[in-house]
Computed example of a mutant assay.
Amino acid sequence: MTPPPVPLALPFTGRWLVQNSPARRVPSHGTDLLGSTYAIDFVAVGAGRATAVRRDWRSLLATEPNGRFVGFDRPILAPADGEVVVVHDGEPDHAARRSVALLPYLWAQPARVRAGAAAVAGNHVGLALADGRAFVFLVHLRRGSLRVRVGDRVRTGQVLGTCGNSGNSTQPHVHVQATDHPDVTRAHGVPVTFLGFREELVRGRRPVERAEGMPQEGSVVEPLRRGCFPSEDRRGGRPSR
């Protein structure tokens, strides 16, 4: 039986594009490997839906510096109260890749999987939630940015590190997943739900403010301030009138 979803705050400020959402499919990344069944990715965007401040010949034919991407080095926040149980740092931030430059990177993906969890996750933090329901991982962080140690107790909204491009990642983003075990090589994925966010849907519809829900694939989300959550049903439906 699938356990009920674990409620989390979005682990950032500002506007982020939703990719690999469990609202589209499960397993969300096409695999249950490393507890990723219900994982979700977020890529920071600037004006409109652009993930980078510049697009040129490198975007089509070569690698790009991470610094041109909106999310690189943006703070990543604790999505819930808990205790730090996993910290891994020291993995390099790869050059970013779009278009043609993705091909050799994708060919090497099986080798990264064989190299183990650290090669896939890159720099990451794992939290045991205070309510004991699950473990939550924030993945692909920037090398040297982690601000917590194993045993630290953290509160929702506390900075854990910054967004990077480490591990199995082609451009700066944060990957969020919940599991039933702190060792992802032994873990099963656990569903999550997010609290208090504004969602800009894909097809030009007006933004919707949700008290709780799973963002749709391709939407852009932004956390609402605490105390400003709309009145709506617990499944993340439209605000009640």
Rank of each mutant, 00 (worst) to 15 (best):
6 V>L: 08
49 R>K: 14
221 V>Q: 08
194 F>K: 07
112 R>Y: 06
117 A>G: 04
215 P>K: 12
65 P>H: 03
164 G>Y: 03
231 S>R: 13
207 P>F: 14
96 A>F: 01
170 T>A: 02
181 H>E: 14
70 V>I: 13
102 L>K: 14
19 Q>M: 15
63 T>F: 11
80 A>V: 01
31 T>F: 06
105 Y>N: 10
26 V>Q: 11
38 Y>H: 09
187 A>I: 12
205 R>N: 09
149 R>N: 04
157 G>H: 04
191 P>Y: 04
140 H>M: 00
142 R>C: 09
170 T>S: 12
64 E>Y: 09
235 R>P: 06
187 A>H: 11
200 E>R: 12
31 T>E: 08
231 S>V: 15
1 M>F: 01
6 V>M: 09
91 E>A: 12
218 G>K: 04
174 V>P: 00
196 G>V: 07
50 A>W: 04
190 V>C: 08
186 R>G: 02
73 D>N: 14
18 V>E: 00
134 A>P: 01
223 P>T: 05
80 A>D: 00
78 A>K: 06
100 V>E: 11
158 Q>V: 04
204 G>N: 12
214 M>I: 15
133 R>I: 07
59 S>E: 10
54 R>D: 11
59 S>R: 03
51 T>Y: 00
161 G>F: 02
177 Q>V: 06
110 P>G: 07
27 P>M: 03
71 G>N: 03
121 A>G: 12
234 R>M: 12
220 V>E: 08
166 S>K: 07
151 G>C: 11
44 A>W: 04
61 L>W: 14
236 G>F: 03
7 P>D: 05
20 N>F: 14
186 R>C: 04
36 S>C: 01
50 A>G: 06
